[in-house]
Design a protein around this nucleic acid. Structure first.
Lengths: 332, 332
DNA sequence: GATGCCAAGGAAATCGATTGCCTAGAAGCT
DNA sequence: AGCTTCTAGGCAATCGATTTCCTTGGCATC
């Protein structure tokens, strides 16, 4: 535990005043190059690292942003975080991660903490894309919502265009020659499920088609996927492709269809949603899936936040397109 | 964007000096209860939140810790983070998350940033349990390693006792009446693979048994699990249980064994490692697995860090026991 | 009534870095 | 030579909260 080096020690070693040392290290003021170098060498030699607290007290900037995940840090938050870190890290900012665990009390508590730490901005994320109540009104710092969106249309939100994802999935199936398409997805009360479902139905309608069976709503699980497969087979419906609301559902279908002797993609092609590596790779055959580009959303949210921090009055929701990743489950 | 409220505004409203206001809000000094209350009400009314930078400049404490994950934030880091946040959040500390992405340059950069921010301590984590070089020597803040361990035995590391996990897996299989046990795991050069393998072999040896086939080393993937299943079946070995080095491998085995008409657990019982929810629940039948209690490790690391911050000279590695979670794949 | 003591709260230094203002000296100009 | 104009760098205020002395007034005691 060494004692921390302060700028006055650097200044003393370089034989200048603290003010001059500060200017030298920050490239400000009018200094002889030689003096600047001398200070820099002194700083190097002592291993000087500026005290961020002192600096931000003076400048008002902390070069810190807070990230509040409303639900437990999970599969969706992590890529968002990585993307955000990416965009911010390049600009030398650090991220405070707060896990509110779906608890409004915790959320407000974290909000206070972040405000107390005078973060330059806040990113709010969650597990669901559904709109949520704004985290606060009249906050002294800019806020951007990522993945989840704010119910206030004035707020800046970056969300995946899930209907676009569904459209791409359906168009891909059409492109590989399928016409008798079913849709199996999560619970009907779940925003993502309904948005993806209507995206799928509308895309089919635009081609003059309809799903061979009405959308099957269930859960976001492999077990539901297996059950849905049995339902489809028992219904006797003539299906040549299934678009699934999640990779887990798709994988469940794949297994149950295989068990029933159906060939994928020969008899039935399969498209998932999320492009979750362990699912798409573990599935036999590897699963074609829709990628929401969560990292891109995180990066984009962070960039917008930086813009807001710099005074740019960005507002409103922004939807980002999805990407289809074709694999063996829809190979022609 | 309101202007931030300072303590002097609170003091003015309450009709006291800033020093008195500070004492009132922090429960220090000798004040009339009535005065204290008046200040607290003024703070409440103005929505005062103390400036953390100013406070830490004065007190030297930031109530902040840094968490550096050496690899990308992944499946292992998340529970560790949650556990750490849990232990720290209760004590009002915040976490800076830094993702070094296996890049030593990034790591050192983050280390500097954290030091500049005068974090009270640092937790280092990674994806592999193998020992790593200390992140720095003579650092001015305490460091604790979680999951990963430091090569310096003086450093404080909290790691899972993987040999213990392997022992529990084998003992469980023995308890359900299996004697002809095989072990399929990840790459031989991977620390976890070898530790778990020797743990398994030793536990068998203690019962006077040996694996029915030599340990099968491969990758940490379902594909390898499937391949290993075929190898086992083709070898003609009489196997009644397989202990797998990971849940993914186990799931691959389960699928391939099912395909070959083997019943699990009737013909062959299966135990995985990691207790990763999507794998153990998605597997048919649900997979018995070894849980390393990553959240507990994170929590424990954070608690040790707090102890170090408070001057307790904790040192050395600490191994935490695993837990076996029995499910259908080993049901009697 | 004088002294001492305690409770309550104020004044000011302090943490470390930044920055606007000022000054000393050098250089350029007439 | 005397004046202006730069240049380089020092001085000191500043950010906001904490904390260490002090001061003041009230009360009890002798």
């Amino acid at each position: 535990m060494d004692r921390a080096v302060t700028i006055s020690q650097v200044a003393a070693l370089a034989g200048v005043s603290t003010g001059t040392a500060s200017k030298a290290l920050n490239g400000r003021g009018a200094l002889r190059p030689e003096t600047r170098l001398r200070v820099q060498q002194a700083a190097e030699q002592l291993g000087f690292v500026a005290n961020a607290a002192a600096r931000s007290l003076q400048t008002g900037r902390t070069y810190t942003v807070g990230m509040i995940t409303t639900d437990s840090i999970g599969r969706f938050s992590i890529p968002l975080l990585i993307g955000a870190e990416d965009a911010l890290g390049a600009g030398q900012m650090s991220v405070f991660l707060c896990d509110a665990r779906d608890d409004p009390i915790r959320e407000q508590y974290y909000l206070r903490t972040l405000l107390s730490r005078k973060v330059d901005g806040i990113i709010v994320t969650g597990r669901r894309t559904q709109a949520r109540a704004p985290i606060g009104v009249g906050l002294p710092v800019p806020v951007v919502y990522a993945f989840i969106s704010s119910a206030d249309p004035q707020d800046c939100s970056v969300v995946p265009d899930e209907a676009d994802g569904a459209r791409r999935a359906i168009q891909h199936l059409l492109a590989v020659g399928r016409r008798r398409i079913a849709h199996v997805t999560g619970p009907e009360h779940h925003h993502s499920a309904t948005v993806r479902a209507s995206g799928a139905v509308e895309t089919l309608a635009a081609e003059g088609l309809r799903p061979v069976v009405p959308t099957l709503y269930g859960e976001w699980s492999e077990a539901w996927g297996r059950q849905a497969a049995r339902m489809l087979l028992n219904s006797g419906a003539d299906v040549d492709a299934v678009f699934c609301g999640s990779d887990q559902i798709a994988r469940g279908l794949a297994e149950a269809l295989r068990d029933a002797g159906r060939d994928i993609p020969g008899d039935i092609a399969l498209v998932g949603f999320d492009n979750w590596d362990v699912m798409v790779d573990g599935c036999r055959p590897a699963l074609t899936s829709v990628d929401m580009d969560l990292e891109g959303i995180g990066r984009s949210a962070a960039e917008l936040l930086l813009a807001k921090i710099n005074g740019d009055p960005v507002q409103g929701p922004r939807a980002r397109p999805c990407r289809l990743v074709p694999r063996a489950s829809t190979a022609v």
